[in-house]
């Protein structure tokens, strides 16, 4: 580090420059700190306050205590359903997405032209969510969509994917998996490339099958990566709603409505800011609990830096 100024023949101007080192970091942090005040602490506390009020933005907030929470948990006709949907969506898309992207990364890692392949999987990652939603809405159209036309060639009558409550959730899960493959493959590939090739060679010499290689070498050595993708994907899935908002709007008959989307509807369509804030907080607390549990598990499992 910098030698102590004491006993150093330093001119007054230089001493002044040294002093800068004490306040310069605060100056450098000032923009971020100011932002943290206005767009982090104020919103977090303000929306906590809102959860105890009845407020549409045209009037002034009225303190109603815990009534919003009481309403959500006892009277609201859709809250529990949207909460279930949230977990189904997050769980379904993270499990399906991890399985498929793991398989694809395993296939793509030791193969020619992997950069090109990966680029193809990266396509949805650079496309906006509205375009993705509409592309898939066309594909999944009951009559004219390519998916059902393709199924018809095989003699299968495809369902009305997005308009039927029984298939709508599956449809949005599939699209969300499709859209996220590139990111997962990227992370898995990095993990897979870190595995020593000689382990596979040794296993092959001993006559291990591909499945055995996968099961006994790849999976154990990839476990930290796997855990990371599963948990962060799950947490992300709990709060994502843009895709659902555009593709189904939460319908049909609330079949795909997740808490975040429901909150958005209550806030910006019904203009019940207090109740919507309470919903946001309930979901937020759930996510925080899962995140903290995850951090514990990661620390014990030796996953660094997160």
């Amino acid at each position: 580090m910098w030698p102590a100024a004491v006993g150093n023949p330093i001119s007054p101007t230089k001493r002044h420059r040294l002093d800068q080192r004490h306040w310069a970091p605060y100056a450098f942090l000032a923009p971020a700190g100011l932002f943290a005040m206005i767009f982090f602490f104020v919103p977090v506390l303000f929306s906590l306050y809102l959860t105890f009020t009845d407020w549409n933005p045209l009037s002034s907030p009225r303190w109603i205590g815990l009534k919003n929470y009481k309403y959500i948990f006892t009277l609201d006709p859709y809250f529990y359903q949207t909460l279930t949907n949230t977990f189904v969506f997050a769980f379904g898309s993270v499990l399906l997405g991890t399985a498929i992207s793991l398989l694809l990364s395993f296939a793509v890692t030791r193969i020619k032209g992997k950069a090109l392949w990966r680029t193809l999987y990266w396509l949805p990652m650079v496309t906006n969510v509205v375009a993705i939603s509409y592309m898939w809405t066309y594909l999944l159209d009951a009559v004219y969509g390519l998916v059902n036309q393709g199924l018809a060639l095989l003699g299968i009558a495809g369902p009305d994917w997005l308009s039927s409550p029984s298939t709508a959730m599956l449809s949005v899960i599939i699209v969300s998996v499709w859209a996220g493959l590139g990111g997962n493959i990227l992370i898995f590939s990095a993990g897979l490339e870190g595995i020593d090739e000689s382990l596979y060679e040794a296993a092959r010499v001993d006559g291990a099958s591909v499945w055995q290689e996968f099961r006994h070498i790849t999976i154990p050595l990839l476990r930290p990566t796997l855990l990371f993708v599963l948990v962060t994907g799950f947490i992300g899935g709990l709060s994502n709603f843009a895709l659902i908002m555009v593709m189904t709007g939460g319908g049909p008959m609330q079949a795909t409505n997740v808490v975040a989307n429901y909150m958005y509807q209550v806030a910006f369509q019904n203009l019940r800011m207090g109740r919507a804030s309470a919903m946001a907080y309930v979901l937020f607390v759930i996510i925080m609990i899962i995140t903290l549990v995850q951090l514990r598990v990661f620390k014990r499992g030796g996953v660094e830096s997160y």
């Binding site: 982090f40 104020v42 977090v44 929306s47 975040a260 800011m273 937020f284 996510i287 995140t291």
Partner: peptide
């Protein structure tokens, strides 16, 4: 410094939907 760095790590974990309503009002 340590305090601020921890805050930066923690703030990343706050989901964006939580900020929609208050930021709109701000």
């Amino acid at each position: 410094k340590e305090w601020f760095f921890r805050f930066v790590l923690a703030a990343q974990m706050f989901p964006t939907f939580l900020f929609l309503i208050p930021n709109y009002l701000i």
